[in-house]
């Protein structure tokens, strides 16, 4: 609320807004209708230097419904074919003989069929995956022309009009989070729904997650749901040995997850 610079509010107005904004503390002021979204954009300039985002994923809460992967495709017009994903859900099955089986049929969008092999299951769980929005992103490092970059608010983005389609970034990403857009012929990846963030909305995968297995928010804000997530969970990042410094944190991730 501090950032609002328009006319001074009356106490009543202020409290009203606060009460509305209370459920989404941590995500600055949230306008309520499309009109207000546009209005807010015009009146209040979004300042990227004031934000830094991260995501938390609680594996214990993921039910593998695949709504995130589905909504992501719908929100960002990702090709529907089963080999282009900005986010997807993996199923891990660790059998009693120590073997690990992983699958992700259509990214989990159509649900997970019963595992046919007659396995004695030791542990099993779902793991949502997406671009880790690394603070030390190898994909940005290798881009020869500066078409993929770390924005000032810490999100790794792709410049559609500048990408030459050399695919070096796809090779450099350790998480398989990038793909070549089949018609645009450019590298494509998760943007944390950047166009939603600047409008004060949540990334769509977080929005539709029915169990709140995904948590999103500001890194620097004490009251953000993300801070709470980081405070109360033992978190890990994927492939820490590569020093990519991901900003997607996993709670309850098994050692087999990679």
């Amino acid at each position: 609320m501090k950032k609002k610079k328009s006319n001074p509010l009356s106490r009543r107005e202020f409290l009203m807004i606060c009460s509305k904004a209370l459920p989404f503390t941590g995500i600055f002021f949230i306008p309520f209708t499309a009109d207000q979204i546009l209005f807010a954009q015009k009146t209040k300039e979004y300042d990227p230097t004031q934000h830094e985002y991260a995501m938390g994923i609680n594996i214990h809460k993921c039910i593998g419904c695949g709504r995130c992967a589905d909504a992501c495709k719908k929100e960002n017009n990702v090709p529907r074919e089963p080999y282009y994903f900005r986010t997807w859900v993996e199923r891990y099955i660790i059998s009693t003989d120590g073997e690990t089986y992983v699958d992700s049929p259509n990214g989990g969008i159509d649900g997970f069929p019963e595992f046919k092999d007659n396995l004695e299951i030791l542990r099993t769980f779902f793991v949502p995956k997406l671009c880790n929005q690394c603070a030390n992103p190898p994909c940005v490092q290798v881009c020869p022309v500066g078409a993929t970059f770390l924005s000032r608010d810490g999100v790794v983005l792709v410049d559609e009009k500048y990408c030459v389609g050399c695919r070096y970034c796809i090779q450099a990403c350790p998480y398989g989070a990038r793909f070549l857009h089949p018609t645009k012929k450019i590298a494509d990846k998760c943007t944390f729904c950047y166009h939603r963030l600047v409008r004060g909305l949540l990334p769509v995968c977080v929005e539709v997650c029915p169990t709140q297995a995904r948590v999103f928010g500001e890194v620097g804000l004490q009251s953000s749901p993300l801070r709470r997530f980081l405070r109360f969970n033992d978190v890990v990042v994927l492939k820490p040995s590569l020093n990519t410094r991901p900003k997607v944190y996993y709670a309850g991730a098994d050692g087999e997850v990679r």
């Binding site: 389609g165 070096y168 012929k185």
Partner: peptide, 28 residues
Amino acid sequence: PLLAHLGHPERSFEMFLTPYTKSAMAMF
């Protein structure tokens, strides 16, 4: 072969205009 494999060969000149010095490929 490099040119032919690019998704956008017409943009390849960008490597001369704005080469990213940290990229191994930019120096090609």
